[in-house]
Amino acid sequence: MSLRRLHHQQPASFAFSAANKARVEKEIAKYPAGRQASAVIAALWIGQEQEGWVTKPMIEAVAKMLAMPFIRVLEVATFYTMFNLEPVGKHLVQVCTTTPCWLRGSDEVVKACKKHIHEKPHTVSMDGKFTWMEVECLGACVNAPMILIDSDTYEDLDGPATEKILQSLRDGKTPKPGPQTGRRSSEPEDGPTTLKEKV
């Protein structure tokens, strides 16, 4: 983790779309009156879904909406690394490099990202389509190594499989999420060892 600061270039304004505004209001309604500040993480998350990253105007808009001091929202936005404080490409590629994924070859996945997206993480690719970053465990260790692209996980990867996914996204297609080796889900790689027949 490194120092988390707001990006040096910020958009002029931010407003929730009507649908997202309704979603934030629904989050606020989950908490007792006067405790609306509890919805800050949800509000920032919805804002990030809308814009791709957390902007200064967004922080201020959320603070005003929740009647919080600006600094309190900035604290939250800088605390959680899943809030992107810099612009990201159209697709955000999060590569898990925690121990199980690393043992199963996440280095190859990282190499593919470097080749296809950018040498440096947290950097938007030349065509604006991708940003990649290393993250900690995303909870799909049984299908390691894996990546999270936007809200879909792609599992059982190696270098070429990753490149294929990235290329098809670049071409505007939607690759099928989940294991990329033909596994249905997280059963053993060489077929089931138990419950082989229907009883």
Partner: peptide, 19 residues
């Protein structure tokens, strides 16, 4: 006057005012 806060966490925690 809630102007002060702590941004970041762990080793990167910094006490600061809003920007």
């Amino acid at each position: 006057v809630p102007d002060l806060g702590a941004t970041g966490r762990g080793e990167d925690m910094e006490v600061t005012t809003y920007l």
